[in-house]
Design a protein around this nucleic acid. Sequence first.
DNA 1: AAAGTCAGTATCTTTTAGGATACTTTTAGA
DNA 2: TCTAAAAGTATCCTAAAAGATACTGACTTT
Lengths: 110, 110
Amino acid sequence: MKNKQKQVQLRDVQDVIEIIGGRWRGAILASLCDRQKRFNELKRDLGDITPRTLTKELKYLEVNKLIIRNAEEGASNAVTYRLTEHGESLEPLIGAIVTWGQKHRKMILS
Amino acid sequence: MKNKQKQVQLRDVQDVIEIIGGRWRGAILASLCDRQKRFNELKRDLGDITPRTLTKELKYLEVNKLIIRNAEEGASNAVTYRLTEHGESLEPLIGAIVTWGQKHRKMILS
DNA sequence: AAAGTCAGTATCTTTTAGGATACTTTTAGA
DNA sequence: TCTAAAAGTATCCTAAAAGATACTGACTTT
């Protein structure tokens, strides 16, 4: 494989990791793989995320077209978040991450 | 699936992303998937990483048993880095990341 | 009608990641 | 023998990520 090809691969890795990276984004996406959820539901799932951070990360994921924010008409306090098709395409990847984590996490984080 | 199980999955995701996350770690690992490499070789592969950062990240990966640093006897300026078995077990995951990136990167980072 | 829940905002502060730049020591090559 | 490369270290600095804490306005439940 040519060298230029490899560079591109490295950039792919960097970009993907930027998208799902950070402390929360991957976990938020993983949580939404299960089913669509509401703000506070996510907040509870994620444990000790602060609302400020959750808002910010959700906005990021929305801007990058991985999730959709849906505020139901009239009821301003009923908001759901769900994956876009794009977001759903991440499922196998997230699955692979979980699987690897289950096998190897403990050996590494001693 | 029970709720506790799901929490664990989220933590798996968070932990794995911490390990391969950040701007460089994933790319370093991806570069070493190819074959073992030396410090400056990695530096060139990665483009604009500073030596300070590269040193730091390599040390992190070594401590976490994903790579091995090998300084050849006597020759203090011949150092190679390669994946451990643990590190090699990440290959499919990194492959999946690259594949997803190739398909979806452009649509997201407009 | 009061209390609680939902979906956030607003500030402020701390922590961490990572860049810029210059320097060093050992070894290899011309 | 002089020069260059390899493999880093040492300082200093900035920007971004994320926590702590308090607050708000809309709606629901009792």
